[in-house]
């Protein structure tokens, strides 16, 4: 009994309840037809959400004003450059991956340098720099759509026992993220800074080192996501990152991480990512038009947050 109550108090439960509910409603509507297929698609697309949301979660946890708005541009830049470099050659796959991760590393470093040296609020720093990354991607790409190496495309769509391989990989990544958050000096430092940066500094936490690492981590994960997404969708498109701006934030917050900072959790990311994807699928299944779909998506996101707010620790 108390175990159930404690479970209900966990901030990530609501995202999972929502995801299950939406999936159930879709399955009920179709009489169970295609429910497995929908779930597989949700696991694949959810995996991409989770990769970027993991980085965004650490950033958001740093406290008010900390949001990485450069994620979409970084994804696009990493995807384009990596695809063009690999030029479809299987042997270049590791090189492409290194390039994508390297671009993330550079983007994160630039973002942090702007925040630190120019003392610009992170939301503005990452917003302004994202314009530059986006331009760089346009300039590099020149409107070409280079196909990914076949092996990479196969990897992103492969399944083991019906479960997408990429979802399994990202599940492992999420576990690593959870350990990083809860069991390392870095993770404890992020949570401390999010609650009170000055107190964190005076308690001996290396505030600036941790902030730097966080922005670099976020951008590197965005680079990874751009690489995999380009491989999955047959090449990098200039607008490929677009929807990841809002959804990375939505996944983090629906997942139970505090937007005010200082409190985060990883399990909620997967629940929220599945919820978001399944929600759109459900509305599509119900035959809703684009307008109705958007209105309902918005209202449901707000509804989830209102429902969760009663159980969340107040700041």
């Amino acid at each position: 009994m108390t175990a159930t109550l404690n479970l209900l108090k966990q901030p990530w439960v609501w995202a999972w309840v929502g995801a299950l509910g939406v999936w159930g409603a879709t399955a009920a509507f179709t009489g169970g037809q295609g429910a497995g297929e929908v779930l597989r698609a949700a696991l694949t697309f959810g995996a991409f959400y989770v990769i970027v949301a993991l980085g965004q979660m650490f950033v958001v946890t740093l406290g008010p004003g900390n949001v990485d708005l450069s994620i979409p541009a970084c994804m696009t830049l990493a995807g384009t450059v990596a695809m063009k470099t690999m030029a479809g050659a299987a042997a270049m796959i590791p090189v492409g991956l290194l390039i994508a991760l390297g671009i993330g590393l550079v983007v994160g470093t630039v973002n942090y340098a702007l925040i630190r040296l120019l003392r610009i609020p992170p939301i503005i720093a990452t917003l302004s720099s994202s314009f530059i990354y986006q331009s760089a991607a346009i300039w590099w790409n020149r409107g070409l759509r280079v196909k990914p190496p076949a092996a990479l495309a196969d990897f992103t769509t492969a399944k083991i026992a019906g479960v997408p391989v990429i979802a399994l990989c990202v599940a492992v990544l999420a576990v690593a993220g959870h350990v990083l958050l809860t069991r390392t000096l870095y993770g404890r430092g992020v949570v401390a800074i999010g609650q009170n940066p000055r107190a964190a500094h005076l308690a001996g936490v290396g505030v600036e080192r941790i902030r730097a690492a966080t922005y670099i981590l976020s951008a590197t994960l965005a680079g990874l996501c751009g690489y995999l997404l380009a491989g999955f969708s047959g090449g990098a498109a200039l607008n490929m990152g677009e929807e990841y701006l809002l959804s990375s934030i939505a996944v983090v917050v629906i997942g139970g991480t505090s937007v005010a900072g200082g409190f985060a959790n990883v399990p909620g990311l997967w629940g929220a990512a599945l919820f978001l994807f399944l929600l759109v699928t459900m509305l599509n299944t119900f035959g809703a038009g684009a307008g109705v779909r958007m209105v309902l998506t918005g209202l449901i996101i707000i509804g989830v947050i209102v429902a969760a707010s009663g159980t969340r620790r107040r700041t």
Binding site: V259, M294, V295
Partner: peptide, 30 residues
């Protein structure tokens, strides 16, 4: 009022509202 009474993060509420406004706009003028 909602943001204040339920102590909600405005970033997320308005993020959700952006979908609502956009959806309504599509409905009003497809």
């Amino acid at each position: 009022a909602l943001i204040h009474l339920r102590n909600l993060p405005s970033i997320v509420v308005t993020l959700g509202m952006s979908f609502v406004w956009l959806g309504l706009a599509v409905l009003v003028l497809p």
